[in-house]
Amino acid sequence: MTKAERTRHFIVEKAAPLINKKGMAATSINDIVEATQLTKGSVYGNFESKEEICYEAFDYLVKRVGSDMAMAMSRATTNEEKLYALFDYYLGTLTQENNFGCPLMNFGTEADDTNPIVKHKVNKAINVTESLIAKVVRAGIEAGEFQKTFDAETFSIKAFAMIEGGMWMARVQGNTKQVQIIFDSLKKEIKDYCK
């Protein structure tokens, strides 16, 4: 990495949690300057606009979440366990310090009617996450763990929507009651399709 690339990465790394917490509109360039301890000139010397930082911050957060999910699932030996590990990953994020919620939810809610670029990025990330879930279900069918009637695409859409909704409720209400009910329901459905 060149010095300029390292500086850009540093700015994004420091700004990403702040933008995820405060939102794109509420995060000022001065907030980013304070988080990075760089000058405004240095920030603008590396990025054309705050919006460009926001776009890269979203990409950074999604990549980090995807990597964390993959790591959590990699420890499982069966596809059923991989799905449970994914649920455990989500549940674990609720108690992580300095975790300000799912970037897909946070950026998507803010950008759905106002920012077509971020809306497109969020849509793409949703599709990737749903595809990941469907891929695990299909692998389970191929391995003989799940019945062939287990509809991978339908389950992945339902699971993603339920998880995101449950996570939102958990963060707003400050407890995991609803999200735990959701995970239990999803686990029961998985069990019903196990051979």
Rank of each mutant, 00 (worst) to 15 (best):
M1A: 07
T7V: 09
H9E: 13
E13L: 02
A15R: 06
A16M: 04
A16I: 07
P17R: 04
K22I: 06
K22N: 05
M24T: 09
M24Q: 01
T27C: 01
I29C: 04
N30A: 15
D31G: 00
D31I: 04
V33I: 13
V33K: 11
A35L: 06
K40R: 15
E48W: 13
S49T: 08
K50V: 03
E51Y: 12
I53Y: 05
D59R: 06
Y60P: 01
V62F: 00
R64S: 13
V65L: 00
S67T: 14
A72C: 06
M73E: 02
R75S: 12
R75H: 12
T78Y: 00
T78Q: 04
N79D: 04
E81C: 01
K82D: 02
L86Y: 11
D88K: 11
D88M: 13
Y89M: 06
G92T: 10
T93L: 06
T93A: 10
T93C: 02
T93P: 01
Q96D: 03
N106G: 01
G108P: 04
T109Q: 11
E110D: 12
E110N: 11
D113E: 13
T114Q: 05
N115F: 11
K119H: 09
V122Y: 02
V122A: 00
I126R: 04
N127F: 09
N127Q: 03
T129V: 15
E130T: 11
E130G: 08
S131C: 08
S131T: 04
L132M: 07
L132H: 08
L132E: 07
A134K: 07
A134T: 05
K135N: 07
K135H: 10
K135P: 05
V137F: 02
V137H: 04
A139L: 00
E142M: 10
F146K: 00
F146R: 08
K148Q: 14
T149D: 15
D151H: 12
D151R: 12
E153H: 11
E153R: 13
S156F: 01
I157T: 14
A159K: 03
A161C: 13
M162C: 08
I163H: 01
E164H: 04
G166R: 07
M169V: 08
A170K: 03
R171F: 14
V172N: 13
Q180A: 15
I182R: 02
D184T: 12
D184Y: 09
S185N: 14
S185I: 07
L186A: 06
K187Q: 12
K188P: 02
I190R: 03
K191I: 14
D192F: 14
D192Q: 09
C194L: 14
C194N: 13
K195N: 14
